[in-house]
Amino acid sequence: MTEKKEGGIGDFTRQDLRKATKFVEGDYNGINPRSFYRKLKRAVEEIQDPRGFKYQTEGTQAADLSIESEDVGQKTGTVKGRLKADSDWLEVGDGELEYRPYGPHGAASIVAGIVMLVLGISGAGILWTILGLAGVGGGIYGYTRRETDTFPIIQQDVIRVLITGEVSERTTEGEHETRTDIFANMSVVFSGDVFVAVDTGGLEELEWTFRREIVNQVKRWHNQVVESEREELQIEEGFIWQLKGLGDRDVKEHRGVIEGAQSVLIRDAPFEYRVAYTDLLEEQLTPEMQENLRTHETELMAELEELAEDVDVYVEREGLQHTSRLEGSSGDPNPQLNSE
Score class of each variant (00 low, 15 high):
residue 88 D to R: 14
residue 205 E to G: 04
residue 4 K to S: 10
residue 198 V to G: 00
residue 10 G to K: 05
residue 76 T to A: 11
residue 60 T to Q: 08
residue 147 E to F: 07
residue 51 R to E: 14
residue 103 G to L: 04
residue 166 E to A: 11
residue 171 T to D: 07
residue 265 L to R: 02
residue 138 G to W: 07
residue 338 N to D: 14
residue 229 E to M: 07
residue 275 V to G: 01
residue 241 W to I: 00
residue 268 D to T: 06
residue 340 E to N: 09
residue 218 V to Q: 01
residue 143 Y to C: 06
residue 327 E to N: 11
residue 131 L to G: 06
residue 255 R to K: 15
residue 106 G to K: 00
residue 231 E to F: 04
residue 309 E to V: 10
residue 311 V to D: 00
residue 278 T to N: 13
residue 107 A to R: 00
residue 304 L to W: 06
residue 122 S to F: 05
residue 72 V to T: 09
residue 183 F to T: 08
residue 81 G to Y: 02
residue 140 I to T: 13
residue 133 L to I: 14
residue 310 D to H: 12
residue 232 E to G: 05
residue 289 M to R: 08
residue 62 A to V: 15
residue 282 E to G: 08
residue 324 S to L: 12
residue 162 L to F: 04
residue 157 D to M: 11
residue 124 A to L: 07
residue 265 L to Q: 02
residue 221 W to Y: 15
residue 196 V to I: 10
residue 237 E to Y: 09
residue 249 R to V: 14
residue 274 R to S: 07
residue 4 K to W: 09
residue 228 S to L: 07
residue 305 E to Y: 02
residue 141 Y to S: 10
residue 181 D to S: 14
residue 40 L to C: 13
residue 193 D to S: 14
residue 284 Q to L: 05
residue 101 P to H: 07
residue 221 W to L: 15
residue 323 T to P: 00
residue 183 F to W: 08
residue 46 E to S: 15
residue 62 A to T: 12
residue 259 E to N: 15
residue 214 I to W: 01
residue 114 I to Q: 01
residue 29 N to W: 06
residue 337 L to N: 01
residue 20 A to L: 01
residue 160 R to Y: 02
residue 172 T to I: 14
residue 96 E to N: 13
residue 271 F to I: 12
residue 32 N to A: 08
residue 123 G to R: 08
residue 164 T to C: 05
residue 221 W to S: 10
residue 254 H to W: 08
